[in-house]
Simulated scan of single mutants.
Amino acid sequence: MFQLEMHYEIHSEQIYQFLYFITFDVQLAEDLMQETFIRAYEARHSYRGDANVLTWLRTIARNIAYDHFKRRKRIRFLRLEENIMIELSAEQLVHIEEEKRELYQAIASLKLNYRMAIVLRKIEGLSIKEAAEILGWNEAKVKNNTERGMLALKKAMGGDLHG
């Protein structure tokens, strides 16, 4: 059984971070995270328990992000336009070191599929199988998008990518 309060307390930060790296917008990530938990609560009776709760929540979050971009027609934009600028407040800029800012800008410049694969595999440390389950892809697609994304990320960082 899905217990909203408990799972929100345990998983909200991870869902927020996942959505932040997809959107690079603090307020939007917060809104989509809230929507994720609302939809999870509404669908709690359909949760079969065969997947990890966090995997189930990330899948819901991914679907909500896709829905948001479709409504805004941004998926098409993200696929065609690879140079997306991150807008950060002055306060946020003060707290983010130069290297992190450059990395975030490089990640934001990636195609959405590359970004999602890298966020799940390299930032959140999920296995190929776990990422495939969340993204609704086969494992080969996860592996290919991760590898291609890392190459694109390395290029965006001027060849300076550790790890």
Score class of each variant (00 low, 15 high):
L88R: 14
I84E: 06
L93R: 15
I60S: 08
R58N: 09
A108E: 09
A108P: 02
L57Y: 01
E82Q: 14
I96A: 02
K111C: 08
Y114G: 00
A90P: 03
I64H: 00
V94W: 10
R79N: 13
I96S: 03
A106E: 02
E99K: 15
R79F: 02
R74T: 07
L88H: 02
N113D: 14
I84T: 09
V53G: 02
Q105A: 14
R115W: 01
L54N: 04
N83M: 11
I64Y: 03
L78D: 05
E102S: 13
A106P: 07
E102D: 15
A106I: 10
L80V: 07
N83D: 11
D67S: 13
V53I: 15
A90N: 12
L54M: 13
M85A: 14
Q92H: 13
L93E: 12
L93H: 08
R115L: 11
I107E: 02
N63K: 12
L88T: 10
I84H: 12
E98C: 14
R72I: 03
T59I: 07
E91P: 00
Q92I: 07
Q105M: 14
I64M: 00
N113K: 14
E81D: 13
T55A: 09
K73C: 01
N83G: 08
A108V: 07
I96W: 02
R62Y: 04
L103I: 03
S109V: 05
N113F: 06
L112I: 10
I75G: 01
S89V: 03
E82S: 08
S89G: 12
R58H: 07
Y114M: 06
I107K: 01
F69A: 02
F69Q: 11
I60Q: 05
I86R: 05
V94P: 00
R62G: 00
K73E: 01
R71V: 05
R58K: 13
I75Y: 05
N83Q: 14
S89E: 06
N83I: 15
I86T: 08
R101Y: 06
Y114L: 05
Q105L: 10
L78C: 02
N83W: 11
R115F: 06
K70H: 08
M116C: 12
I64W: 00
R76Y: 10
I60W: 09
K100R: 15
Y104F: 12
I64K: 06
R79Q: 05
R76C: 04
F77R: 11
E99A: 15
W56C: 06
N63F: 01
E87R: 15
K100W: 08
F69G: 08
E98G: 11
T59D: 04
L103G: 04
I60L: 14
K70L: 09
R62Q: 04
K100C: 08
L88S: 12
F77P: 00
A65E: 03
K73F: 01
L80E: 11
E98L: 15
R72A: 12
E91D: 10
F69K: 04
I84A: 14
I107T: 05
L88Q: 11
I84P: 04
Q105R: 14
L110V: 03
D67G: 06
I96C: 01
K111F: 02
A65C: 08
M85P: 05
R115S: 04
A108K: 14
T55D: 06
D67H: 09
I86Q: 01
A65V: 06
Q105H: 07
